[in-house]
Amino acid sequence: MKMYLAPIIFFAFVCNSVSAAPTGRIFITNERGDSVSVINGSTLDVEATIDVGERPRGIGLSPDGNELYVAVSEENKIKVIDPVSLKILREFEAGSDPETFAVHPNGNIYISNEDDAKASVFDPKTGAQVAEINVGLEPEGVAISPDGKRVIVTSESTNMLHVIKASDNTIEKNILVGSRPRAATFTQSGDIAYATAEISGEVVKVDMNTGEILKRGSAGDSKSKPKDVVLSKDESVIYVAGGRANKVVVMDAKTLEIITGIPVGKRVWGLAISKNGEQVFSTDGVSGTVSVIDTRNNEVIKTVEVGEFPWGVVIND
């Protein structure tokens, strides 16, 4: 009997450490506030603010949800935070001017280094740089396909989506899109990606296997400077942060036609969607707020005051 118990206890222990229950919290980087706001997922109130250093921008979670990563641009570092205790656990050098990043299913961080025309890959456990990839000028958005095969890095001043093969971190394709591509997101299958182009004011839908642009759609009027983009759970619509249009634009994922615009705060940059698909959170830079959108009726159900210039958002769900 005892002989069987030990491995069971051991197994339970391993499971526990691998995936702790998610905190349900929403984490926001405040670019000028030099902090991370922590929003309680049930009450939707700010429950804590963490000082993280100068100009925090990109934010993400480890695949198991046990570690929160924040790119602190002016310090050229990524800081690792415990999403439960909210303590900074450690930090590591992340190249010049780290901005946006995405976390690969294998745990590595792919990050754009805006000043260097480079994307770099870091192992956050050790802080070691795994790879460095030359891309276009002002690399910005980073997206990783759910199966981990492909990584997109957008270069704003070279107007490209650089498609990187994650197996050997080499560039597979360079896709010219509109002016100032900012962000991208993949479908679950990884076959399609959507990307925003800020100055062209458009969204493109790209076949990731051929590199062909399948569709282009305008994200609204001339004020619309689309930034972040997320896909609904059923992949029927995309949500696009409209920048100065002060709206989250909802577009048909198939036709790229605008379905509606949801008024939020001023200069909306970042977006995140909950795993159940029911809520979208937007960071409204100039207003210093986060808008919580109910995706069932596309209405803002709460506006949460956070720090100065909220930038990135991630949900620990």
Binding site: A117, G136, L137, T158, N159, M160, H162, I171, N174, L176
Partner: peptide, 10 residues
């Protein structure tokens, strides 16, 4: 120099 940086991909 920026044109050549883009040009290397094209």
């Amino acid at each position: 120099s920026e044109a050549n940086l883009q040009g290397q991909f094209l």
